[in-house]
Write a protein that binds this DNA or RNA. Structure first.
Lengths: 339, 339
DNA sequence: CTACTCCGTGAAAGCGCTTTCCGTATCGCT
DNA sequence: AGCGATACGGAAAGCGCTTTCACGGAGTAG
């Protein structure tokens, strides 16, 4: 059944040690002739090394773990693509877990990945800005790093570890500028979960942007969706009720913005003629909907790439935080306010 | 640094064996008092077992491997969600790999996952209907199953293994019926890569559907995209050149259909007034675009769930193939032909 | 009170691999 | 020819854990 290195060695008529060296092309050279014999034997028996045994012996695993909110959310799937792209270069195997922003689940996954001694652990999404959460997460992470692995966070940095974060504040600020310049004054905001750091940053940025034009954003005009399409639609209903004459809606994620678009369409409100809509992230979806979405481009793929690179090539205790620029992309969903 | 079970045992003043039993709640009971001591010691040292050592000792890994075409393609991310949902129930860790339909990459991943002795291996996407490909894939798979793992394919069954496949033929046939009934006669088709089995099935189904109404589909009217948005757009250009007076386009995947929609919009062709468009899959995106897409619903999440269930609970050599029904979903992108 | 069965515990044998440490054979040099 | 230096193969010691096996003490029955 399970063919082991021992059998390969026997078949090739060499010792275990030699067989191992031949297959790994180790420092220590092996006579070409022997190497060939071993390779042939391995091939013939269709030997596949046991990664666990290797991990144990080498105490290194070539594994990386990723915990995201939800793989099927385009924001995160772009990120995982980025991660995979560097992982496949470096020969690492990627384990992806979806936490659905459930702290308990998330902790469980961190522990599981710790057990697997992944060399790098990437956490994206979640990032609750909650005392007890970050407390226990921090200790959890600590017990991970104790094994020599490195963590990298994407989009948050409230817990010790490398981090790569998009310029949420700056991007959102530009959104504020844009809307202000277009003459919008009554603007509804569909934010993310209030406890999530990136929600906060984006909201704050947007506020700042409006403030730059002397505008205020009453907090009743901010509704929080949960970064989901339906959340966006729900928030839109609430907003419309509260502020029937609004002329713009700023959704702090594209997925939610799509929900906004849907809700508006259902009510026969035309975008951008009656209401302008902006999103955030620039997921592929943003350019597929009608009208195409004005949004802030977040380099998701790059975020993933950088995060893994940091974690893989980091050393020492020095933690690096990288900020990636965002930039506004103007499409069809926004226009000058005409009331 | 790395705290081992031995240290926990020492700290608790028990033997290695007892410590192990206490932690695993093994058959062989342990005196409650001792168990507590061990648990406390483990907690205090923040001990996390080494999964590799466990895997080696138990020769079982609680790991499952998944190879898809591309995680960020919504079709596959829905599938992986399904997979993860059952994996998290059964406590399995999921490793996800994107092959980008590259046979070489795919093989490499199969081998890698074999090395990790995953208990279940799910393959979705690809499925080239190519002699030499399936040949070598089959032997690769064989060397995997030799270790006691099980494979499950999603959407193909040209290689021995469990499989769960959507009713591609049936669904596409309904699409044929729909378009025929709406009076369309000049219909362009945007198919998937010709070598991929599901592309073929869908194309065949569509042909059958038209045939049921006495209509023929000249093969020049079939252009193949590559299941990508841009592929869909490109194919549309070709089709339009070849068949300027077409009244409907059938895209054999939603993502391509979105490309079709975009291309049409660019040319100022209105959907569905001038041209009807249908897709396939019913990814979330399909109901986000404008007009919303008439398509065939493929139970992707379910596909993932079933595949892993099959692989996890299968036994013996008997291979099970499950067919999941598809069903047509009529939305806004189709209308009666009015020429 | 002896004989016998349970049951909790520990010692030790692996699981499949890597790698250090030796031993031997080969080579180049004086 | 004799010497050290070099190179390569093999034996064996782990890596961290599970599990079989053996053991001794406690409990039950005769």
């Amino acid at each position: 059944m399970a063919v082991t290195l021992a059998e390969v060695a026997r078949k090739a008529g060499v010792s275990l040690a030699t067989a191992s060296r031949a297959l790994n092309g180790s420092k220590r050279a092996v006579t070409p002739e022997l190497r060939e014999r071993v390779l042939a034997a391995a091939e013939e028996l269709s030997y596949v090394p046991n990664a666990h045994a290797q991990a144990l012996a080498r105490s290194t695993t070539a594994l990386v773990g990723v915990i995201v909110h939800d793989v099927s959310d385009p924001y995160f799937s772009e990120i995982t693509r980025g991660i995979q792209s560097v992982a496949s270069e470096s020969g690492h195997l990627v384990s992806i877990c979806s936490s659905f922003r459930d702290p308990v689940r998330e902790m469980a996954y961190v522990r599981l990945l710790t057990a697997h001694r992944v060399e790098a652990l990437i956490l994206a999404g979640s990032g609750l800005d909650d005392r007890s959460y970050s407390q226990s997460m921090a200790t959890q992470i600590e017990s991970f790093t104790a094994f020599g692995g490195r963590v990298a966070f994407i989009g948050r940095h409230n817990i010790p570890g490398d981090a790569v974060i998009p310029d949420n504040v700056g991007g959102a600020r530009l959104l504020g500028h844009l809307l202000a310049e277009l003459g919008h004054r009554r603007i509804g905001v569909v934010g993310g979960p209030p406890l999530v750091t990136s929600s906060r940053d984006r909201l704050e940025g947007f506020r700042l942007g409006l403030a730059d034009y002397g505008l205020e954003l009453p907090s009743e005009w901010v509704r929080s969706g949960d970064f989901s399409r339906d959340g966006g639609a729900r928030a839109t209903s609430e907003l419309l009720e509260l502020l029937p004459d609004l002329t713009a809606i700023c959704a702090l994620s594209d997925v939610m913005a799509v929900g906004v678009l849907t809700a508006l369409k259902e009510r026969g409100i035309s975008v951008p003629d009656q209401v302008s809509v902006v999103g955030f992230d620039d997921v592929p979806l943003a350019s597929d909907v009608t009208p195409t979405l004005t949004t802030v481009h977040v380099p998701m793929f790059e975020l993933g790439k950088r995060a893994l690179s940091l974690a893989l090539h980091g050393e020492g205790d020095e933690l690096r935080v990288e900020h990636l620029p965002t930039q506004i992309v103007i499409r069809q969903s926004t226009s000058r306010c005409n009331v």
